[in-house]
Amino acid sequence: MSLIHTEDVLLLAIVTLIGGYQLVSFAKLTGAARRKFKIVYPAVTGNPDFERVYRAQQNTLEFFPIFLCTMWVAGVYFHQIAAAGAGLVYLYGRNKYFSGYTVSVEGRLPGFRLSGKTLYAMLGMSVVGLTHAVLMEYLNINLKVKLLHMYYNKKY
């Protein structure tokens, strides 16, 4: 059993805070759109331009727990730098998604695709990392060593 030290998750924590900042920024933009289009609380409909901003914010909130889970598991069990880098790409994609959606429904697609592909990448890193950890912990099989051994012992 190994202990996790703060330096082992430092980059993940930084990307998490950047993500939190992004959520706050999107909430402020949604509030500004609510004022601009005169949408009185608790209404969330009434103007298509406001509705696109609102949906962009809500969709980002809906995906945030998935983002956090996959990034942190990938960072702890696969590689912190790879997971944090993917997290930054995901947040960039969400920014493109938000800004594109505020212009048009179709404008959301490039950012949505980028962030979706990045979630799948972090999920893949998580599965590989967890598989390795389970094999090490319960079967004493070091997958990294076996793969390196297979690679370097190939006959050409």
Rank of each mutant, 00 (worst) to 15 (best):
V73L: 15
V103W: 02
R94K: 10
G87N: 05
H79V: 08
Y77C: 09
F98A: 05
F98L: 08
S104N: 10
S99V: 09
G100D: 11
G100C: 08
L88N: 02
A82V: 09
G85Y: 05
V76Q: 03
T102N: 10
L88W: 00
G75M: 03
K96I: 10
T70I: 09
L88A: 12
A82H: 03
G87H: 07
Y90G: 08
T70A: 14
K96P: 00
G93L: 02
Q80Y: 00
A74W: 01
Y92R: 10
V105K: 11
K96F: 01
R94F: 02
V76M: 08
N95D: 13
A84E: 03
I81M: 12
W72G: 04
T102A: 12
H79R: 12
V76P: 00
V89L: 13
N95M: 13
A86W: 08
Y92Q: 10
T70H: 08
V105G: 09
V73H: 03
G100H: 07
Y90W: 15
G85I: 06
G100S: 09
S99M: 15
Y101K: 10
S99D: 13
Y90A: 08
S99C: 09
V105Q: 13
Y101M: 13
I81N: 09
V105M: 07
V105S: 14
Y77I: 11
V73W: 08
Y92P: 03
F98M: 07
A83Y: 00
A74S: 13
W72F: 15
F98P: 03
S99F: 14
G100N: 10
G87P: 03
A74G: 06
Y92G: 14
H79S: 14
S104H: 11
H79K: 11
I81D: 05
V73N: 00
V105T: 14
A74K: 02
A74D: 05
K96C: 08
G100V: 11
N95V: 14
M71W: 09
A83F: 00
A84T: 00
Y97H: 12
F78K: 05
R94C: 06
G75V: 01
L91E: 02
Y90S: 08
S99N: 15
A74C: 09
A83G: 01
N95E: 14
T70R: 05
A86I: 10
T70V: 14
Y90C: 09
A83Q: 02
G93T: 04
S99I: 10
K96S: 03
Y97R: 04
Y97S: 07
L88S: 09
A83M: 02
F78P: 01
Y92H: 12
A83D: 02
T102L: 08
A84Y: 01
T102H: 03
M71S: 05
V89I: 15
G75P: 03
G85C: 11
T70M: 12
A82L: 13
Y97F: 15
V76L: 11
V105I: 14
A83S: 11
N95W: 13
W72L: 13
F98H: 06
A74M: 07
Y90R: 06
L91Y: 00
H79P: 01
Q80D: 12
A86M: 14
A86P: 06
T70F: 15
Y90Q: 07
L88P: 01
G87D: 04
G100I: 12
N95C: 12
A74Y: 01
L91Q: 04
S104D: 12
N95A: 15
K96Y: 06
N95I: 13
A74F: 01
Q80W: 01
A74N: 04
V103C: 02
G100Q: 10
